[in-house]
Nucleic acid binder design. Structure first.
Lengths: 233, 233
DNA sequence: TTGTGCGGAATAATCGATATTATTTCGAAG
DNA sequence: CTTCGAAATAATATCGATTATTCCGCACAA
């Protein structure tokens, strides 16, 4: 029997899963600021649920490096820093290079179809608002790596992607980095992947990341990004 | 009145932390077999605590890839497979190579002291039982990477180490791989690190892993490792 | 005999409340 | 006026119980 509960339209899975996704979205998009304390009771009221799903979701986010847990002193969102951003960029370049090469090495027609499709959906979403575009953008990049037979590596890449995209959001929605010819870059990556040219595809992918990274590093240097905090140490 | 739980005489951290460490140890050492269902109530009785810390600890372990979560169907320990093991070996070689080189690039005398000390403690623990040795063994390897300014990378390495060591335990405590001249290998790695020879240190480190890996792969091929399921209460 | 649908038992997920712990505030002494 | 300490306060961690879901066996019909 396939009855969908009408009382829970947005909630297909468990409450924990729902809260997890909502919180992650709120952190990634900057709705919850870096270093902000996450009080259980506030979130409970805000998300209209009990304390247990909140705690469980926060535990999951802790291991995604999006939330820090202070032993017996509750949770807070992860801090941001230029150093952290640089590490992210470095690790992404390294790990996605590995995954992409492996993906291409195992290339099949089905995978080609999948990345072409993902690319198309991303392009179509360009006019459908940034939220949709970002979603498809990640989907495209993950699809590029999906053909590698390294599930753990893929999970790492996915986590790093989320951590990185957070900086993009923190840089402000005004970040129309799409003004750069990102469409062309994506097309170039896709093309090289379809052509199964690992060196070229990897080179283009890494440049894609590094250019965005350099742009954000510039913002960070000017203090636009890391606003609320001046920590000693 | 101060009623202290007799099961927590040391009572240092939170119950969640305690349960987390206990469960992780049980999974890593194979006391909980791969794919085994983790029933909340059983664990609750077994560890003499409530359901909340259990659930929270299992959530944490999920993100460590040691436990799988089946939505609304509970938890189970992660499966093992030759493919998974190969991925672990590959990722460890790649990531630890990065971290070690960075560690050496930032080498200081304090770090030299730290790795020499960690090595010494590991050697001394050789006669103090396998449990202690394994602990020190991880400490030594992590100390080698500790001087890299890449906290996320270090976390990845630590996680991968735990996933890998699980296979060693599953291969049986009879695995006295120390019969190989592992002591000599460790000394070689340490020596190269102290000499700040990144290429040599990395080469020796990776060989160290690959030899253990090849040994375990052999066991796995013969079916010693991935056996069926013979579980007793 | 086999496939399908129902119902009870088992188990997971969630909630509300309590006890424990950290933090802040207030007052008094130096 | 500052500093120390204890009580008040707020928040967390945990527990017990309730609710929702899944799993398994059995009856019934084709």
């Amino acid at each position: 029997m396939n009855m969908v509960d009408p009382n829970a339209p947005s909630g297909e899975g468990s409450a924990t899963q729902r809260v997890y996704k909502m919180l992650r979205h709120m952190i990634v998009t900057g709705e919850l600021e870096p270093g902000e304390k996450l009080k259980i009771d506030s979130l409970r009221q805000r998300l209209h649920t009990g304390a247990s799903p909140i705690r469980e979701a926060l535990s999951l986010l802790t291991s995604d490096n999006l939330v820090e847990r202070l032993d017996q002193r509750g949770f807070r969102t992860a801090e941001v820093s230029a150093k952290n951003f640089e590490e992210l960029l470095f690790l992404r370049c390294t790990l996605e290079d590995l995954a992409l090469r492996e993906s291409i090495a195992n290339a099949t027609e089905a995978w080609e179809d999948a990345i072409v499709l993902a690319h198309h959906k991303m392009q179509r979403a360009k006019e459908a608002g940034q939220a949709t575009f970002e979603e498809r953008h990640k989907a495209f990049h993950m699809e590029l790596l999906a053909n590698a037979t390294y599930p753990i590596l893929q999970k790492f890449c996915s986590q790093l992607y989320d951590l990185n995209i957070r900086y993009r959001y923190l840089a402000g929605n005004a970040l129309n980095y799409q003004r750069r010819d990102v469409g062309e870059e994506h097309r170039g990556i896709l093309e090289a992947a379809v052509a199964r040219d690992a060196d070229l595809a990897s080179d283009r992918l890494l440049n894609h990341y590094k250019m965005t990274g350099a742009f954000l590093s510039g913002l960070m240097g000017s203090g636009t990004l890391v606003r609320g905090q001046a920590r000693a140490g």
